[in-house]
Nucleic acid binder design. Structure first.
Lengths: 184, 184
DNA sequence: CTCTAATTTGAGTGTGCGCTCAAAGAAAAT
DNA sequence: ATTTTCTTTGAGCGCACACTCAAATTAGAG
C-alpha cells in the first residue's frame, strides 16, 4: 500500500474533527486544535484537505449517516425499530448526535452544500418514518401518515436539541412518549 | 432628559444586535456589522456596553421573553392559547424565534449564564403547558401531564428548529398536529 | 452665552484565525 | 545504492476579530 501513512493521518484528522465539532461546535473548531488533537501540523492538514470546510463536510457525513440505522433496505422496519435505533444512536453516540443538531442549525444560513445535504437527509428520514407508520396504521392514510411522520421527526430533533443543553435529559423516555402519541 | 441620546443609541444597538443574531447566528454577529447597522462607531458601542457578550445577553432576553405570551402566569390559559400564541410568535416574529433556537443550541457549551437562563425558561414553559394540559385533561394525572408537556415543548422547539433550515416549513400546521396528538 | 457633562469619533492595539510553501525527511521502487 | 515519490515540517502571511482611548463634538444646565 503506497499511500498508507497519508491515509492514516487523514483518518486521524477526520476523527479529531468530528470530536471537536461535538465538543466546541462548528465555529469553535479550529485548524490548530484539530491538528494538535491529531498530532499533526497545519501543513499536513492542507496536504490532505483543501479547506477546513471540506474536512468538516467529510467528517460530518459520518455523523449524518449514523442517524439512519439501516439505509439499505426500506420496507421492513417498524416504527419501534426506527425509534429504538434513534434512541440507541443518541445514547451511545451522543457526540455524533450533537454534531447532527449543530450542523442542522448552522446549515440554516451557512453553506448551501450543507443545507442541501441536511434537507435531503431529513426528507429521507421522514419518508422512512411515514412508511413504517402507514404499515402499522394503514387506516391513517398517506397524508396523515406523512404529517405525523414529519411532526415526529422534528419532535425527535427537538428532544435531542434539548439534550444538548441538559445532558441529564432522558431522550429515550421522551422519544417513546412521542412515538406512543404519534401512533394514537 | 439628560441621557436621552445615549439611551436611543443603546436601543438602536440592541435592535441591530437582535437582527444580526437572527440572520447570522451568534458567532456570525460582529461588533463591526452591529455598529454599521446601527449607524454608530465601535467607540460608542463600548461606551454603552462592557462587551459583545453583555449586549447579546441583553438583546436576547427580549427574544426569550417573547416566546412566553403571558408572563404574569394568570393560570387561565388553555393549551390552545399557548400553542396559538407560540404559532403567532413564530410566524410574526420569525427573527426572534430563530434567535431563541440559536441561543438554545449555542447555550449548550458556551456561557453558563446563557445556559442557566435557557434552562430556567424552558422549565417555566413546560410547567405552563403542563398546567394547561392538566386543566383540560385532569384524568391524565400530574406525572403524565408533565411528561407530555415536556415532550410537547421539546417537539415545538424541534419544529421551529426545522423552520430555521427550511423557511417554507409550516410551523403552525405541525404545531397543531403536535397539540392534537398530545391531548389524545 | 458659558461652562460642563454627555456623547461620538476613528485610528489603533493585540490576538487568533485559515491558510501557504519552500525545504527537509521518510519510505518505496528500481 | 540511488532515484523517485510520498509525507511532514513550521515559520509566517494577510485578515478580521473584540476592544481601547485621547481628542473632538454636541447639547443641556446655570
Amino acid at each position: 500500500m503506497r499511500y498508507k501513512a497519508g491515509l492514516e493521518t487523514r483518518d486521524r484528522i477526520l476523527e479529531s474533527t468530528r470530536a471537536q465539532i461535538a465538543q466546541l461546535g462548528l465555529e469553535g473548531t479550529t485548524i490548530k486544535t484539530i491538528c494538535e488533537d491529531a498530532g499533526v501540523l497545519p501543513g499536513s492538514f492542507y496536504n490532505l484537505f483543501d479547506s477546513k470546510e471540506q474536512a468538516i463536510l467529510t467528517a460530518v457525513r459520518v455523523a449524518i449517516d449514523a442517524v439512519d440505522p439501516d439505509p439499505d433496505h426500506a420496507g421492513t422496519d417498524t416504527l419501534d425499530d426506527l425509534i429504538n435505533a434513534y434512541i440507541r444512536f443518541v445514547n451511545e453516540q451522543g457526540d455524533l448526535a450533537r454534531v447532527y443538531i449543530r450542523i442542522a442549525v448552522a446549515a440554516g444560513r451557512s453553506s448551501p452544500e450543507l443545507r442541501g445535504r441536511v434537507l435531503r437527509h431529513h426528507e429521507g428520514r421522514v419518508k422512512r418514518f411515514s412508511d413504517a407508520l402507514l404499515r402499522e396504521r394503514p387506516d391513517l392514510g398517506q397524508e396523515e401518515a406523512d404529517n405525523r411522520a414529519e411532526a415526529l421527526v422534528s419532535a425527535l430533533n427537538g428532544v435531542t436539541l434539548h439534550r444538548t443543553i441538559d445532558t441529564e435529559f432522558d431522550v429515550g423516555h421522551f422519544a417513546r412518549i412521542l412515538k406512543r402519541v404519534a401512533t394514537a
